[in-house]
Amino acid sequence: MTLLAADGGPACYVFTINDWICGDYYRDRWRELWDASVEHLWITAAAVVLGLLLAIPVALLARRLPRFEGLVLGATTIIYTVPSLAMFSLLVPFTFLTPRTVIIGLALYSLTILVRQILAGLRSVPDEVREAAAGLGYSSLRMLARIELPLALPVIMAGLRVATVSTVALTTVGSIVGYGGLGNLLASGVDTDFKAQILAASVLCVLLAVVLDLGLLGVQRVLTPWARARSS
């Protein structure tokens, strides 16, 4: 790596210059930024997917058993209240300094959002629709798959978007166990007062959130063509 810029002068990220915005930095360190973004993305994706896989059965069970629902809502509220730094620390004895610590911690947060949204989504299905499907001879499993989940999808997707965007932001805190994606660059940037790296990592983090949010919005539009037809 060179500390000289293309025109022969010192690169704008050397300590004596330390610009916030620095083309030399992007050119010399793009690989580092790319790797951190990729780590950030897969940790986020793993956490949200794990959260969703746990949330669906929990929500379906909670719908059946009102007492279980109260328990779930109470427990998830407590989980959600625990600050992420403490959450990761409390998981370390079980999962050690691995990506699992961050993924499980973040999955617990998304679980909280998703269980509520899935329940709200299923409740938003009108009773008449359900009765009509039952009258047509739908079994409860088929009703869930063909009627209830599709109609609940917009509300569930809204929850998935919120969970994803906040998970992207929270992944940065994973740097406490060394797996924070772009958060690792933030942490090392603080230690070395590296302004170009700090700004680049911050901007990439927000960009990642926006891109994932728009992507999920696109998925939602593809999955619910009837909603598009209605609004146009």
Binding site: S166, V168, A169, S175, A201, A209
Partner: peptide, 19 residues
Amino acid sequence: SNIGRAVPTFAVLVLLSVG
């Protein structure tokens, strides 16, 4: 609300304290 959700608190703390 949407902006508050997308911007990491950690990044803001870093940007303000280094900046």
